[in-house]
Computed example of a mutant assay.
Amino acid sequence: MPRHSGIRVDVASLDGYIAGPGGDMAWLTEHLTGDNPTAERLLANVGAILAGNRTFGGDDPNRGTDSEGAFGGRYHGPVFVLTHRPPAQPPADVTFVGDLHSAVAHSKEAAGEKYVNILGADVAKQCLRAGLLDEILIFFAPVLLGDGVRMFDDPGGARVRLMPLPGETAHWYSVVR
C-alpha cells in the first residue's frame, strides 16, 4: 500500500448513515462479524487514528467487551482526538489536540509511512474542506437505518470529485484535487 496522509473509513448503512439516531452505534454489532480481507489489509497499514471527540467518547457497539475500540479492539497504536474540550484526566495513550492542522500533522508524523485513519463525521468533513483528506473507504452494511448521522453531511458544501483506486475494492476512492 502506498503512503497517503489520510483515509476516511466508515461502515455505513445503505441509506448513508454511519450512526443511528442520537449517535447510536449498536446497529453495527451484527455487521462487524466475518472475514473482510480489505479491512484486514487496512488494519495492518494504519499507523495512527485521528478521531473527533464525539466519536472518541461515543457509543462503541463493543463497549465492555474484548472487541471495544477501533477495528473491533484490534488496533493498538497512536490515537489523536481533535477537540477544544479535552478531559481533565485524559487517558495516557491518547493525545488531545485543539486544532485541525496540528491534529493532522501530529497523526501523520506518528503514522510514518502508514495511513492515518480518520474516525468521525465532523473530523472527516473538516479534513475534506481543508484539502487534507486523500482517500475514502466505505464498507456498506445491508441495512437501512432511516435516520441518524449521515456519512458526509455538508449542507452548502462544495462538490468533491472522487476516483476509484485502481486494483482496490469497490468504494475505495482517492479525492481528486
Rank of each mutant, 00 (worst) to 15 (best):
V9K: 02
V11H: 10
S13W: 08
L14F: 06
L14T: 15
D15H: 08
D15R: 07
I18C: 12
P21Y: 01
G22I: 04
G22T: 07
G22Q: 05
T33P: 06
I49T: 06
G52I: 03
G58Q: 07
D59C: 09
D60P: 01
P61N: 01
N62Y: 09
N62I: 06
R63T: 12
G64Q: 07
G64L: 08
D66L: 10
F71V: 03
R74H: 10
Y75A: 09
H76S: 15
H76W: 02
G77S: 06
P78T: 13
P78R: 12
V79P: 00
F80N: 05
L82A: 07
L82Q: 01
H84P: 03
A88F: 00
A88Y: 00
T95W: 02
V97G: 04
D99Q: 04
D99Y: 04
S102R: 10
A103Q: 01
A103W: 01
K108I: 11
A111E: 06
G120I: 00
G120F: 07
K125W: 00
C127K: 00
L128A: 05
A130E: 04
I136A: 12
F140Q: 03
A141F: 06
L145A: 09
D147L: 01
F152P: 12
G156M: 11
G156V: 12
G156Y: 07
R159S: 04
R159A: 13
R161S: 14
P166H: 04
A170M: 07
V175E: 08
